[in-house]
Amino acid sequence: MATLLVIPARHASTRYPGKALVELTGATGQRKTLIRRSWDAATQVQGIDRIVVATDDARIRDEAKSFGAEVVMTSQACQNGTERCAEAHDALGQTFDIVVNLQGDAPLTPPWFVEALVSALYAHPTAEVATPVLRCSGRALAGFHDDRRAGRVGATTAVFGIDGQALYFSKEVIPYTTRDFPPEAQTPVYHHVGVYAYRPAALAAYPRWKAGPLESLEGLEQLRFLERERPVLCVEVEPRGRQFWELNNPEDVPRIEAMLAEMGIA
């Protein structure tokens, strides 16, 4: 079973243009671009046969090549990372059994999150897509609420059935709860981590489907699968002492830098 890991990255991000080239300071004071830190995270994943950056922008291409990454140029017509992964897989000859989408705005993604997805697809032959979910601590949930009160579009939450099949993903905090949780307490809210593992048939079909109303309203690419009644398997992962956050807004830069410092990531 051959596994491809794609890091889709674009310069014209709606919420934070140019974020792929934003520099983030690590624990030792070293500054690396977001796309470099995402590449570093990808190289820590075990069981991956090939890693590529998929982009439509020459600036991102040049930065990626400067630190030795393989780059696949994709079209500007790609609406999201899943479509970019599909185009990259097609350009590489569609020879892989599993394609992983490690989005270029999640440099804190631990390698075991990705490894769990690949294992889940091996263990569930009927699953077409797998994605990780992380149970929120009281501290993380408070951060979600802070973002909403400030009018920022922050992290995504997920709800799923007892079989792990996704019911819905949202930029709102779901399920609704009025409880206050201590910082280290576990909550009933799950943070959706923007990583995906696809079987090639599902990935190839995705660009042929029109975006539905839910995807358009929420701005969440994975909802296209649910609107087409294609199952998405949610795989619960453990933080193992690691913090996780995506870079969605300029305000996330100091938050991620603080996490890099606290975890000792250079």
Rank of each mutant, 00 (worst) to 15 (best):
V193Q: 04
F96C: 06
L226V: 05
A261H: 08
A197F: 00
V100G: 06
R228Y: 03
T131N: 03
Q76F: 12
R37C: 03
Y16K: 10
D40E: 15
P213Q: 13
P200W: 00
S137Q: 01
A123G: 09
E262C: 14
E251L: 15
N248G: 11
S13V: 11
T95G: 10
A41W: 01
A130S: 12
D97E: 11
Y190S: 02
P231G: 06
R208C: 14
A185Y: 04
P239V: 04
T157M: 03
I98R: 04
F67Q: 08
L121V: 09
L214G: 12
S13C: 12
T25K: 12
G29I: 06
T3W: 01
P125M: 08
A205G: 08
A116T: 11
P107N: 06
A201P: 06
F96V: 05
A58G: 10
P17R: 14
D62F: 07
M259F: 05
A166N: 00
L141N: 02
R152G: 08
Y122W: 14
R240I: 09
T74I: 15
T55I: 01
A116N: 04
V45Q: 01
E229K: 14
G93P: 01
I256Q: 09
N249T: 14
C78K: 04
A185R: 06
L121W: 01
D105N: 08
P8D: 08
A201S: 13
L233R: 08
Q222A: 12
S13T: 11
D90K: 12
L24S: 06
E172H: 11
E172F: 06
S137A: 08
S170V: 03
A205K: 03
G68K: 04
L21C: 13
S170P: 02
L34D: 00
E262R: 15
A155M: 15
A116P: 05
V173R: 05
Q94L: 05
P250V: 07
A58L: 10
A258P: 07
G81P: 02
K32L: 14
A41I: 01
